[in-house]
């Protein structure tokens, strides 16, 4: 029963994906159909055109199993010999350094903004 509900809701979410595909056709911007679909679903929820319960379970499943959906692409790594050599290790270091800087900047900015907010209140 629960599985059936999830399948139905996932299919229903496809309606918004299709709407997104339609919008991408009309609006000539380099924005993927799925992003348009996200916007359409969000607006539909805000305007009470659809109820949260109609998509909640299906959306939760899609997001919980997100890892599964990009495993096939990850297998494609075997087509790139570079990744398994020294270059691959250098790339790993690049990603680690960049991620540290990004997280540090984001955290510091957010903390500063929140602190200022508290002081001004």
């Amino acid at each position: 029963m629960k599985l059936g509900k999830i399948i139905l809701q996932v299919l229903f979410i496809h309606v918004f994906l299709l709407a997104g595909m339609g919008l991408k056709h009309i609006i000539p911007l380099p924005i993927p159909a799925s992003m348009f679909g996200l916007a359409v679903l969000f607006i539909a929820l805000c305007l009470n055109i659809i109820k949260l319960e109609w998509v909640e379970k299906g959306a939760a499943w899609l997001m919980a199993e997100l890892l599964l959906f990009f495993i096939p692409s990850a297998v494609g790594i075997v087509n790139y010999d570079d990744m398994l050599s020294l270059k691959g290790f250098e790339i790993l270091i690049l990603i680690a350094v960049s991620t540290i800087i990004v997280m540090g900047m984001t955290a510091l900015t957010a903390e500063k903004m929140c602190g200022r907010r508290r002081n001004s209140q």
Binding site: V10, I13, H14, F16, L17, G20, P32, A33, S34, M35, G37, L38, A39, L41, F42, L45, C46, L52, V55, E56, G58, A59, A60, L62, M63, E65, L66, L68, F69, F70, I71, P72, S73, V75
Partner: peptide, 21 residues
């Protein structure tokens, strides 16, 4: 494995739900 990769698109759409909540 195209069915599985395809699901990335509806999964992106699904992110509307937590933003709405």
């Amino acid at each position: 494995a195209k069915w599985l990769s395809h699901m990335l698109a509806p999964a992106t759409v699904a992110f509307a739900v937590p933003i709405y909540k």
